[in-house]
Design a protein around this nucleic acid. Sequence first.
DNA 1: GCCTGTGAAGCTATTCACAGCT
DNA 2: AGCTGTGAATAGCTTCACAGGC
Lengths: 204, 204
Amino acid sequence: MIPDKTIGRLSIYRRILNRLLSEGVKNVFSHQLAVMAGVTPAQVRRDIMSIGYSGNPNRGYGVNDLIESIGHSLDDPLGQQVALVGVGNLGRAILTYFSGRRPRLAIVAAFDNDPKKFDRVIQGCRCYNIERLDEVVQELGITIGAITVPLGEAQKVANALVRAGVKGILNYAPVRIQVPLNVYVEDIDMTMALEKVAYFARKK
Amino acid sequence: MIPDKTIGRLSIYRRILNRLLSEGVKNVFSHQLAVMAGVTPAQVRRDIMSIGYSGNPNRGYGVNDLIESIGHSLDDPLGQQVALVGVGNLGRAILTYFSGRRPRLAIVAAFDNDPKKFDRVIQGCRCYNIERLDEVVQELGITIGAITVPLGEAQKVANALVRAGVKGILNYAPVRIQVPLNVYVEDIDMTMALEKVAYFARKK
DNA sequence: GCCTGTGAAGCTATTCACAGCT
DNA sequence: AGCTGTGAATAGCTTCACAGGC
């Protein structure tokens, strides 16, 4: 299996490659990709090696082929559905951001407990009463949840998502949620990130 | 110097400790902190060791003392000022989130190029015309920038922040920005995070 | 007995450096 | 000449395991 860190970088390479493709670039060398991704050329070559794609010493990597090869490793051929729970400021930002961007990995349902928010369409995404989570998750075949609720409700929401059968969670709430081992959690901790920047801004 | 990863975890420990403090907890053991932070007890002990704080084999760590000790390592005694550039959905979410939370590390100015947004107060934060970035950053002694503008403007904004003298950048735009070596950048890449979750949700 | 602090071991991730290709 | 692919070396991070303390 491809390691954690490599998966993240492949996702970054793909985004860069898609931009290059739209600019009409046909081939790219590891050192060029490296600059754009902010890593070393050796790292790029190793990562690409790990998905079994091979470049050509003369032309480098074929932009189009590499995009496809990364997709083959990262994407589910059938697509994966995402649910977002918590339609506050952050939730809306994320809905806007992902709206219609990626058909293979789309936020197909949002949930909230506020009647002013559910039963309408927000940023192109249908918003449901959170009480219907179980039902909707199963109906739409959702396997991934994004938690953008306030701290105090995060664990409750995580439990509900797990109960509904979700296998991966993207957690924006500033608490570590407890889930069974077969559920993957990725935390995005904004406070932590800012404090880290603050620390290293001083130490450089 | 304390390593990158440790800084991040210290920030997490501190948040947990503050919650414990508010609940009246006086002491805590490494294994308790470990569960709440989602790491191993040995890791907790190492991290705490790295800031030179010592616990007591009988009572564990003093909650209050440890908070202070972490603060002593992470925080600038004079405080650090943050500027946020880009008052869109995400920018507003972040302003709301940090509003009045941490006096030592506060977002003291927001910037945008949209006249509908600048020259007013948003979420308790004064919003300025982006053309005044240089002036305001220097006047308020800002040393940290958060970039929440669309992809295409991120590099331009980064350049402006660096020119104004900022030493750390929290970048939410999905591009690697190029900055001088003495500026620290932390990227928060939501697309990457979601794709990672999608991948590992399938592979578990 | 159960904790902390920590040297040493073990792992994982990254980079080096060069053979092989075109 | 300048690239890729990759074994080997290195660096960085985490866990083990146990001495020392109460």
